[in-house]
Design a protein around this nucleic acid. Structure first.
Length: 434
DNA sequence: TCTGGGGTCCTAGGACCC
DNA sequence: TCTGGGGTCCTAGGACCC
C-alpha cells in the first residue's frame, strides 16, 4: 500500500491549502485599483465565455461559464468590467504568489495557477496555525495585491474543506480556518454538500445522491467496500482522507509533463483546409517549444478535429488520429510536418470546423533519447531550434515561424478587452505617476 | 456572428506469450 | 479429442482537477 508506512496518521503533520480569491479577476484589479469593489469578469479565449468573476460580479448573477454575448446587456447595465484573459499576466502573478508562499515552508506543492499546498512537519502541538494563516494572508496581499484564503487540516482533502469554509465565511474566519479536532471535522463535513467535495465530480455526485448521500459526512459513513467498488481506489483514498487518515502526500517533485497539448476553438466555423492546416502547424510548433522548455522529446502525437457541437442544426464530424513517430523529436519543423500530415488523414471536406488541437505524448527526457538505427531526427534542427528559441525569447513573442504557419495572415484571437502585460513586457509596464 | 484550455490517474478488456 | 490459466503489455475510455 504505497506510502502508508512512512506516512502515519498519528503525526502532527499539518497541511495548508492556500487559494487565491477570484484569481484572474484579482490580477486585473491589482493594476487598476479604482476597480476595487467593482464587478469584474474575465473571458475565455476568443472572448467566448466567463471564466472568472469577482465577488461583486457573482452577486450580480453572472454564473461561471456564462456565454459572453448572452450577458452583454447585464454587463452594460450593471457596469461590469470585462477583460479578455491575459495569461502572461496571470502566470507571472502566480509565480510571485508562489515565491512568497515558499517562505513559510520548504515543503510546497504548486497545485495549480492559483493554489498551493504547504506542509508543516515536526512543529509542536502548540503551534498556532491560525496566526500563521493570517501572516500568509498579510504577506501575500502586501507583496502582490492578491487576496488569499487559507485552510489547515491534517490531510490534504480536509485542508481543501477548511479552505472552502475560510473562503465562504470571510467575516467569521478572516479567510483562515483550521480543522484540528474531531468536532470541527464532523461539523465541517456535515456542512459541505457532497457535490462540492474535492474529488467528487458530477458522475459520482449523482450516484451518491441517488443512495441518499447529501453531504461529505454521510459519505464517510458508507462502507469502504462500496466505495472501492464504485469509485476505485481513488474514492477510497478520499474516504480515508476525510476520516482524517492521510493518504495523499505532498507532490512536490518537479516532474516533467506527461502530455503537452495545444488546442483552440476558432473564432467562427471554418471549412477551409489550408486555414486549418496553418492552425495545426502553429499548435505543433507551440508543443515543440514547450517540449524544448522542459528538455524533452515526444514519441507520439495526436491530432483532432471537431465541428461545433453546439450547432445542432449542422452536420457533425469529430475525429482524432494517434501517430507513433519514427523517432523522438522536439523540432518545430518535424512536429509541424507530422501534425499536418496527420490532419490530412482526418480532414473531411464539407463540414464546418470549430476546433482543432495537437497533443504530444510519450514524452522522454533528453538523457533517455534513444536513437533509432535507421531514421533519426535531423541533428541540424537542434542548433536551429536553439536559435529560434533565442530570437523568440528576445523579441518576446513568436516572431520566427515556419512557412506553414500563419505568416502574414489575418489570424488573430478575438481579444477585444485585453489588459496590458504589465509585468512581462517592458513596453507595457505600468506607469506610476509622480 | 458568439459556447475555454490543459492536465492527471485508474480500470477493463484485448492481444499475446508461455 | 478435449481442455486452462497466469502474466504482461497496451489502449480506450471514463472519471476527476484547475
Amino acid at each position: 500500500m504505497g506510502n502508508s508506512n512512512i506516512f502515519n496518521s498519528t503525526s502532527l503533520t499539518m497541511f495548508a491549502l492556500i487559494d487565491c480569491n477570484n484569481f484572474y479577476a484579482s490580477c486585473e484589479r491589482t493594476f487598476q485599483p479604482k476597480l476595487r469593489g467593482k464587478p469584474i469578469v474575465v473571458l475565455s479565449n476568443n472572448d467566448g465565455c466567463v471564466i472568472a468573476r469577482s465577488n461583486e460580479a457573482k452577486k450580480l448573477g453572472v454564473p461561471m461559464g456564462a456565454v459572453a454575448f448572452e450577458y452583454k446587456e447585464l454587463f452594460e447595465k450593471e457596469n461590469i468590467h470585462v477583460f479578455s484573459s491575459n495569461y502572461a499576466l496571470y502566470g507571472d502573478m502566480s509565480s510571485r504568489v508562489m515565491d512568497l508562499l515558499a517562505e513559510f515552508s520548504p515543503d510546497i506543492e504548486v497545485y495549480s495557477i492559483d493554489e498551493a499546498f504547504l506542509k508543516f512537519d515536526g512543529f509542536d502541538a502548540f503551534f498556532d496555525y491560525n496566526t500563521i494563516g493570517k501572516d500568509i494572508r498579510y504577506k501575500v496581499t502586501k507583496g502582490t495585491g492578491i487576496p488569499v484564503s487559507v485552510g489547515f487540516a491534517h490531510t490534504k482533502s480536509l485542508s481543501k474543506v477548511a479552505n472552502k469554509i475560510a473562503k465562504k465565511f470571510p467575516e467569521k474566519t478572516g479567510n483562515v480556518y483550521v480543522i484540528d479536532n474531531e468536532e470541527k471535522r464532523i461539523k465541517a463535513l456535515k456542512w459541505l454538500p457532497i457535490e462540492d467535495v474535492w474529488g467528487i465530480g458530477r458522475q459520482h455526485a449523482k450516484r451518491l445522491q441517488a443512495i441518499g448521500v447529501k453531504n461529505a459526512y454521510q459519505f464517510t459513513l458508507l462502507q469502504a467496500d462500496w466505495i472501492k467498488k464504485h469509485m476505485s481506489i481513488v474514492g477510497l483514498r478520499l474516504y480515508n482522507e476525510l476520516l482524517g487518515i492521510p493518504c495523499l502526500d505532498l507532490d512536490d517533485a518537479l516532474v516533467d509533463k506527461k502530455n503537452i497539448a495545444c488546442t483552440r476553438s476558432f473564432d467562427k466555423n471554418y471549412d477551409d483546409y489550408n486555414y486549418i492546416k496553418e492552425r495545426v502547424s502553429s499548435y505543433a510548433v507551440n508543443c515543440a517549444e514547450k517540449l524544448r522548455k522542459q528538455n524533452s522529446y515526444c514519441n507520439a502525437m495526436m491530432v483532432f478535429l471537431l465541428t461545433n457541437y453546439h450547432r445542432k442544426d449542422l452536420e457533425q464530424y469529430s475525429k482524432n488520429i494517434l501517430i507513433k513517430l519514427p523517432y523522438p523529436t522536439n523540432s518545430n519543423i518535424e512536429l509541424s510536418k507530422f501534425a499536418t500530415n496527420a490532419l490530412s488523414k482526418i480532414y473531411k471536406k464539407g463540414y464546418l470546423f470549430k476546433k482543432t488541437g495537437v497533443i504530444v505524448m510519450e514524452i522522454t527526457p533528453e538523457s533517455q533519447k534513444q536513437l533509432n538505427m535507421f531514421e533519426n531526427s535531423n541533428p541540424k534542427h537542434i542548433s536551429l531550434m536553439k536559435a529560434i528559441d533565442n530570437v523568440n525569447k528576445t523579441i518576446g513573442v513568436t516572431k520566427v515561424k515556419l512557412a506553414s504557419q500563419d505568416i502574414g495572415r489575418a489570424w488573430k484571437m478575438k481579444q477585444e478587452k485585453l489588459s496590458p502585460r504589465y509585468t512581462t513586457r517592458i513596453d507595457e509596464l505600468l506607469m506610476i505617476k509622480a
